[in-house]
Simulated scan of single mutants.
Amino acid sequence: MTMSYKQLIEGQRYQIQAYLSQHLSYREIGRRYRKGSRAKRVIIPNRIGIEERPEIVETKQCFGDWEVDTVLGKQGTGAIVSLVERKSKMYLIPKVPKKSAEDVCRAVGAMLWRYLRHLHTITTDNGTEFCAHESIAQKLKTDVYFANPYASWERGLNENYNGLLRQYIPKGTDLRTVTDEEIEKVQRSLNLRPRKCLGYRQPAVVFDELRSAA
């Protein structure tokens, strides 16, 4: 008797189930199935979504709107906080010992404090390292907005620069071996790289001009 396609599939499924039952306990099967099946939900207190951000920020015509993210080193070796100003494309990359809300809040505050007079908004992602966003907003007297989950294009400039950063500091790098002087050198190199979107001008030059004019 010829076996139908449906019977063949059912037979293969039965063989797989029998193999799993023989080699794995029920608890192990359940644990393996659940692993990664649900993304860990991050609850950020008093989060303000990007839909409430002023529409003019999207045009990139105003000076003083920043995007913020973190770039991780090898597990447990720290992180780099990446900040980019949307109009000038100026890029700042302080290194922090760990990806904690406290360290990230301190780094963002230290880097943007000097530009406080021109600071209007900050847009970030939904990582737990930004749970202290209210402290950042209060310290810098600005508004912090969160992009939608899994919508990296809403911080596209930041994502683009993080890709450029990886040309200098590849994924998996032990950041303990990267000095602050090396970080500053990379930052300077990226800010002196002519950008097509700026008419092949340098972000550092455009940034200084906009600061002087504001």
Rank of each mutant, 00 (worst) to 15 (best):
V57K: 07
D125A: 12
K95S: 07
G78D: 07
A101C: 04
C105G: 01
P97F: 09
K98W: 01
K74N: 13
D69L: 13
E51K: 13
D103N: 11
T77Y: 10
K87M: 14
A132Y: 14
D125F: 08
G73N: 05
T59S: 15
K141N: 10
E67H: 06
R53Q: 12
E85K: 05
T123Q: 09
V68S: 15
I122G: 14
K98H: 11
A110Y: 00
G78E: 03
K89L: 15
Y115L: 01
T123L: 14
A132F: 15
T77Q: 11
V71I: 13
E58K: 13
Y115T: 01
I48S: 11
L116Q: 15
S82C: 09
K141W: 01
S82V: 06
R117D: 15
G73I: 02
E85N: 08
K74S: 15
P94V: 00
A107S: 06
F63R: 04
A107K: 03
G49I: 03
D69P: 10
L83K: 06
P94L: 04
D65T: 04
V104E: 00
K141G: 06
E58G: 09
I136S: 06
D103Y: 02
C62F: 13
R114I: 08
R114E: 15
H120R: 15
V108G: 04
S100F: 04
G64Y: 04
P97K: 07
T59I: 10
I48Y: 01
S82R: 02
